[in-house]
């Protein structure tokens, strides 16, 4: 009888991946592909490249599991950071930027799937939503533009016609406030890195 993977920690699953256990990667995919893909898709607004990024992230985890260090945060954080960085690379390439603009105009924005119901923790998503809504609007806007629009802080400053130092502060303060609020809301150390 094969051992169940559902109750194993993410770190244990990564160790199993390092031993070429494909079922472990599948469990990691089941747990985290929704948020990884959702993040890539939110930035790219196009399913095909978002899936390419998602596939690249999970294949990379398979090939290089040692890149994940549990001492440096949760697996979800690791995968999201990888996905975000890769997606930003994609977005900042000129050809990709043109493709994105074309697709923005051509692709309807309505949702076709409800990934939250299947993949992510609904309570966590709701809590994050509430906490984000409580942020000062200017801090929330700066974070949105940087994280979800792929802008550098300089581009955000130019876009909002604000000093660069102001934008740096808004991003840093906003993230710190979110961290504090999420910790108060009961997220574990691994989930907010406290």
């Amino acid at each position: 009888m094969e051992p169940s993977l559902e109750n194993q920690s993410d770190a244990s699953l990564v160790i199993a991946v390092a031993k070429s256990d494909q079922r472990a990667l599948e469990e990691i995919y089941r747990r985290h592909s929704g948020v990884v893909y959702g993040l890539a898709n939110r930035l790219l607004r196009n399913q095909a490249p978002a899936e390419e990024v998602t596939q690249e992230i999970f294949v990379r985890l398979w090939n290089e599991p040692s890149r994940y260090d549990p001492e440096r945060g949760s697996l979800r954080s690791f995968l999201c950071a990888q996905a975000h960085s890769r997606t930003i690379d994609y977005l900042r390439a000129e050809t990709a930027r043109r493709r994105r603009h074309d697709l923005d105009a051509a692709t309807p924005s309505g949702p076709r799937y409800d990934v939250e119901a299947e993949v992510v923790n609904m309570l966590a998503a709701e809590t994050v939503r509430v906490v984000v809504a409580q942020l000062p609007a200017n801090e929330r806007r700066a974070i949105e533009l940087a994280y979800f629009q792929g802008m550098t802080y300089r581009e955000v400053a130019e876009f909002l016609d604000e000093p660069e130092g102001t934008i740096k502060s808004r991003i840093r303060n906003g993230l710190s406030t979110l961290h504090l609020q999420l910790a108060r809301a009961g997220f574990t150390r691994n989930e907010v890195g406290q």
């Binding site: 954080s77 999201c80 939503r129 993230l175």
Partner: peptide, 14 residues
């Protein structure tokens, strides 16, 4: 690490 954990949680917010 803290900032990236928060960023990963932001990805949950639809």
């Amino acid at each position: 690490i803290q900032h990236r954990e928060v960023a990963a949680l932001l990805a949950l917010d639809a």
